[in-house]
């Protein structure tokens, strides 16, 4: 058993891989080794995996319905047996609501990342490689978006689009791509004049091929790191919109909206606001730790050694 594990390890770390697959897996494994050497990053990963697990099995895990409460018997009950995190003013079990809320959080975070990161990557890489007028135009547009505080801009968009979770996602995505464009452009500028890009150009490769296949892959790792570190901010923005009533609409168990509805009793029934607050804190922390670990593991400069 342990011998088999050892040979698998050797296979992965081989200096002379025999196939494309082995080379790729070996590289991934080395990143994983660097990543897993960092305890805090592992803790972050664990938190995120837990979030995914909870979101996937929310129906099985939650003891009560997240939407329908028991108005007569159990309004604003403190944490205790039966309701581990207490109940809110509608008599709904807060634990169940948080468990179901994890789906919304994950939904928001993933959608924003899927929309914003590619836009930023494309804008930045194209601007950086093309240079000239295109660079100026694209980067000034980016600057316009960067000039506004993120939440204010998101507020304006939601106000225009109408409240709701989809529009909140859209608004956050629109406001969060500019930093990615800046990063992608900066990375592109550093590799654009390198010999290996010149070498590809001398193969006769078209500019679009160079950007797509040779420059973008180099930008991706720093982008992943930045996106992961931004996840906490995205969660907070989504929670902020929810808190202001512009994000998820009741009775959806969105964590920000839950805090908003709990603030009326924050002094006497603190758990109503504290429980979703703690959930936001832990998940944000998890993403931050994960991002830090990824930075060390994926940093192209570190891995060239």
């Amino acid at each position: 058993m342990s011998e088999a594990a050892l040979t698998r390890r050797e296979w992965l770390l081989s200096e002379r891989p025999d196939s494309r697959l082995q080379a790729r897996l070996g590289r991934a494994y080395q990143s994983w080794l660097r990543f897993s050497a960092n305890r805090l990053a592992l803790a972050g990963l664990l938190i995120i995996l837990l979030l995914v697990f909870v979101a996937a099995f929310a129906d099985l895990l939650s003891p009560y319905s997240p939407i329908v409460g028991d108005l007569r018997g159990s309004r604003l009950m403190p944490p205790g047996p039966g309701h581990w995190l207490g109940t809110d003013d509608q008599g709904r079990d807060i634990l169940s609501r948080i468990i179901h809320g994890s789906r919304i959080t994950l939904y928001v975070v993933l959608l924003v990342a899927i929309i914003a990161a590619p836009i930023g990557l494309a804008v930045g890489a194209v601007a950086g490689y093309a240079g000239g007028l295109l660079d100026v135009v694209l980067m000034r547009i980016t600057d316009i978006f960067l000039a506004f505080p993120k939440l204010i801009l998101a507020l304006a968009f939601v106000a225009a689009l109408g409240p709701g979770i989809e529009n909140a996602v859209l608004a956050i995505a629109i406001t969060s791509w500019p930093p990615y464009a800046r990063i992608a452009r900066a990375e592109t500028l550093t590799v654009r004049s390198s010999d290996y890009i010149a070498a590809v150009a001398l193969m006769g490769a078209s500019p679009s091929r160079i950007v797509l296949r040779h420059i973008m892959p180099l930008c991706i790792s720093s982008l992943i790191v930045r996106v992961t570190l931004d996840m906490a901010g995205i969660i907070l923005t989504a929670a902020g919109l929810g808190f202001l009533g512009l994000g998820a609409q009741p009775p959806l168990p969105e964590w920000g909206a839950m805090i908003a509805s709990g603030r009326r009793f924050i002094l006497d029934q603190w758990w109503v606001a504290a429980a979703p607050g703690a959930a936001i804190l832990i998940v944000s922390l998890g993403f931050n730790l994960l991002g830090d670990g990824l930075r060390d593991a994926l940093d192209p400069r570190g891995s060239e050694r």
Binding site: R20, D195, P217, P300
Partner: peptide
Amino acid sequence: YGSLHPRQT
């Protein structure tokens, strides 16, 4: 050292 793409086999 500079003429080969660092991420490509």
